[in-house]
């Protein structure tokens, strides 16, 4: 008997939303995506490409794990903030490498950050798996943090001089130079900011179902969300939903991970294909 498409769709899209536990899991899965995606989206608005969220996240997770180890069983009220802070700092530091190379020697930051993320995963491979076991589940606090980050990102982009600089550098680099905005400063800000957010996501993500490939999925979320903070939140929730549904489909319906991964991929392709003018502007305009 052929599989029932309706049942399949239900499992893929709606089943993860059906129970309170499922919703909690959905939110926990979406939080790291939101954090990484916000950073990537903001950087993309300035035409700065951070494709290495995966590595920055790994460093963040490792740093958080290290702090947890140091604190040991005597974990107090300060442990959690210290873990988050250390994670953000680690992600930021790892993202500083492409920033230096770009501003000093004009190395393409997208390529450098992408390759560095493979290096990071090689370096930290084992620790990352164990860090998860030590971290506590972050459910609601993580979501509040992600929402705060999204709000801050929106305010920064739409209402502040910093956000304005960022957008001008992304849309018209020559106009930015004319206005007196430093492209290098914006590159630094974007890479450090998105690296820090990815590190933060690493502290929170440890132990959730998406653990491998969050960086890549966050890139999809950023573009699916049209590089707008609110869009990134919505896209991250959708992608988390689909990935949880895909896991269920894999368990109950016999679909492989590769097969279920087609859905978000198709989503992105459809969006990009009908997207004649993206927010990043020039890339699409120079047809």
């Amino acid at each position: 008997m052929p599989p029932d498409p309706k049942a399949g769709l239900w499992t893929l899209v709606l089943a993860p939303l059906a129970t309170p536990d499922g919703l909690a899991l959905l939110v926990a899965t979406a939080v790291p995506l939101i954090l990484c995606g916000l950073g990537i989206a903001m950087a993309c608005r300035a035409n700065v490409w951070n494709l290495g969220a995966e590595g920055q996240l790994a460093f963040g997770a490792a740093a958080a794990g290290l702090v947890a180890d140091l604190a040991g069983p005597t974990a107090g009220a300060w442990t959690m903030p210290a873990m988050l802070l250390a994670a953000a700092a680690a992600g930021l530091a790892w993202a500083a490498i492409p920033a230096v190379l770009r501003t000093r020697w004009s190395a393409p930051e997208g390529l450098v950050s992408l390759l560095l993320s493979y290096a990071a995963v090689q370096l930290l491979g084992d620790q990352r798996d164990t860090a998860g076991a030590r971290a506590e589940p972050q459910g609601e606090a993580g979501f509040v943090l992600a929402m705060a980050a999204a709000l801050l990102a929106w305010w920064l982009l739409a209402r502040t001089l910093t956000g304005f600089r960022l957008r001008v550098v992304g849309l018209a680099p020559r106009a930015a130079a004319y206005a007196g905005f430093s492209t290098d400063a914006v590159v630094w800000l974007c890479l450090l900011g998105s690296g820090g957010l990815a590190g933060l996501a690493g502290a929170i993500a440890a132990g959730t179902i998406l653990a491998p490939g969050i960086g890549q999925t966050a890139l999809v979320a950023a573009f699916l969300g049209r590089l707008h903070p609110a869009g990134v939140v919505a896209a991250s929730l959708l992608l988390a939903d689909l990935s949880l549904g895909a896991a269920r489909l894999g368990i109950g319906g016999g679909a492989t991970l590769a097969e279920t991964g087609v859905i978000p991929g198709l989503l992105l392709i459809c969006l990009l294909a009908c997207n004649r003018r993206t927010q990043t502007g020039r890339v699409a305009n120079d047809r």
Partner: peptide, 20 residues
């Protein structure tokens, strides 16, 4: 169009460009 203003932005935003 390429240097004096940002084509994708509004007049207000472009006034801000050199009056920030």
């Amino acid at each position: 169009l390429d240097c004096g203003v940002v084509g994708e932005m509004t007049l207000s935003e472009n006034a801000f460009l050199t009056c920030w």
